[in-house]
Write a protein that binds this DNA or RNA. Structure first.
Lengths: 347, 347
DNA sequence: GTGAAAGCGCTAACAT
DNA sequence: ATGTTAGCGCTTTCAC
């Protein structure tokens, strides 16, 4: 503990009781203007800093909110985190980060967030909400906000994944591509929803659905949203009889990996194969990757809003915010013939 | 608060006093094996979770460490953060993140980290350690670990910036470049040290030091380590009479911006101008940016080690860990210049 | 080896 | 409007 000025010190110096000091400090009305001013002055003078642990103990609530992040490997989280920080900075709350680099640790981290820190709330990123997790979350009785995933029982903010898949696929179709493939993450609801949009677009265009054009990362240990997974998955796709002329990846990071694989095999992007990712992370702009943009920063902000709201109305009805992704066309999905990956951001 | 099992519950059920329960839970010797086992069993059965606020209050120390990050805009931090998380996950400590997107908020965030959370220690990222900050840090009496910066009075982990600047510059010289410029961040010791290495390399090669080839981002409000700052700074550099045939940027992000400016003006990289950055963030690999790699992940891990060490030996001598950066040559600094440096963009 | 009791710094009744 | 007092859940002497 730093210097250690307590409300007792202030009380003594201001000649009042600690209760009064507490009242002043917490804006609990019914304090004469005179004493209020005096107490404030003394507090200021002594450089008083409340002891948060003592406050938490007495108030039965903490001033931190925990974010549980499956893998920092994906910059998507970083962007969302920035939004969180911005909004949180204006509030009383501080941010405890429980990130894991592997998917195995997620539940460990979740438990920590739920119990160890006794946080005032939990922000869960991109996590499949299994029945087991639902139970654990509810048992904790903490406000839970879901980010990039959805579940009927918890507030959430996400993006319309089905729509994203649809937009990407129709974009390919509009350009005359016909053998449209998918590089999917093996886990997670988002990937599945994106696939549904992909299938709907094909259906509406009366294009056949060819299962052999859909490849998933198979590593059970991994979450599948890595560059390496994208690379491997694309390799697998190229192994198959007829190669695709377009590929929709479930994340930018995977798309980057897929492009590496294509390049290695000598395929031109978008000449031979067009590529569209998902997220619009910062890198994408530089490599000219076409993608579906998620308003990441804003998603973080809204998540905080949901959280603060939930604190106000613990029994309010569950609310979901769903953003629409927007298709950003850059060079990896330009017109068929040849394209040139450019270093210049196109937007 | 969750379910709320306290040591009183355990004590009652195990027929011992709360003191004994506490002893068992904290491995305080002098407890009979029998009672120890019994208490543990009950604790397990009840799903006991210590109340951290109460513990902190009684122990006079918290179980969180705060990281103060100037701007999440730079992915360098993210990578280091991963290292931190990895190491921290094995410890008792949780991570509180105080990130700001602008440089103005840094001191606000620093104060929060120092006082609001009453953390057990503070990890400061890339922050110029002014005398004022030194005072505030010391007054807090908390263990302080510096990351990506250095100061005689605090433990730190950083990279040899001077060496980095030297390596980049000599690399250019080896390739026959003669008019080597710098795109510098206006703030921060790291940039200055890198410049020293740059000057030393020029000196050793008996090349003249031309101040007009060194450009700094001028925005006072900004930290200068952004893509935009790199772009603007490069623009300024190109305004001057004789353009450089190589540019060393103090960060990859700036290098990316500089490349955008070059491209816009019709200059070829590395044909007309070679570019080398600093950091080796993930993006760099994709755009083929040559750079100086910092072992970011490892730096995060070492920072935690320093911190834990400091807790053990509060009065131990200050220790600094300095990593050597390694030059990664990719495509932006590959080929030698196009004959004589000309004022006209090629093609 | 174990228990009783005094805090840690603060909040929130309950008094006055 | 202000003071007194009883906790919040845990750690830690000090007894026995």
């Amino acid at each position: 503990m730093p210097v250690g000025v307590t409300i007792y010190d202030i009380a003594a110096r201001a000649r009042v009781s600690i209760a009064t000091v507490s009242r002043v400090l917490n804006d609990h009305a019914r304090v004469s203007e005179a004493t209020r001013a005096r107490v404030m002055a003394v507090a200021e003078e002594l450089g008083y800093q409340p002891h948060v642990s003592a406050q938490s103990l007495a108030r039965r609530k903490t001033h931190v909110v925990s974010a549980v992040i499956p893998m920092m490997t994906n910059y998507f989280f970083v962007e969302v985190l920035r939004g969180l920080q911005d909004r949180l900075a204006e509030s009383e709350y501080d941010l405890l980060v429980y990130a894991s680099n592997t998917l195995e640790d997620v539940d460990t981290q979740l438990d920590r967030a739920l119990h160890r820190g006794r946080s005032a709330g939990v922000l869960l990123f991109s996590m499949p909400i299994t029945e087991d997790r639902v139970q654990r979350l509810k048992r904790s009785r903490l406000p839970v906000i879901l980010l990039d995933c959805m579940h009927a029982e918890f507030d959430s903010v996400s993006v319309d994944n089905e729509m994203g898949g649809f937009l990407a696929t129709r974009h390919f179709i509009d350009q005359g591509r016909r053998r449209i493939g998918m590089v999917m993450a093996s886990k997670g609801a988002p990937a599945l929803e994106r696939r549904r949009g992909y299938e709907r677009a094909l259906g509406e265009a009366r294009l056949p659905l060819d299962e052999s054009l859909i490849a998933m990362s198979i590593e059970v240990e991994e979450h599948g949203y890595t560059e390496q997974a994208g690379y491997d998955t694309m390799q697998g796709l190229l192994q198959r009889p007829e190669r695709p002329d377009a590929v929709f990846a479930t994340s930018d990071v995977q798309a980057l990996g897929a492009m590496r694989a294509l390049k290695e095999r000598g395929f031109k992007v978008p000449g031979d194969v067009a590529v569209v990712g998902f997220d619009d992370i910062v890198i994408s702009k530089y490599v000219g990757l076409s993608t579906l943009r998620q308003p990441m920063r804003q998603m973080g902000e809204v998540a905080v809003d949901h959280f603060l709201n939930r604190l106000q109305h613990p029994e309010g009805s569950v609310s979901h915010t769903v953003f629409s992704p927007s298709l950003i066309v850059r060079t990896t999905s330009g017109a068929p013939p040849n394209g040139h990956a450019s270093l210049q951001p196109s937007s």
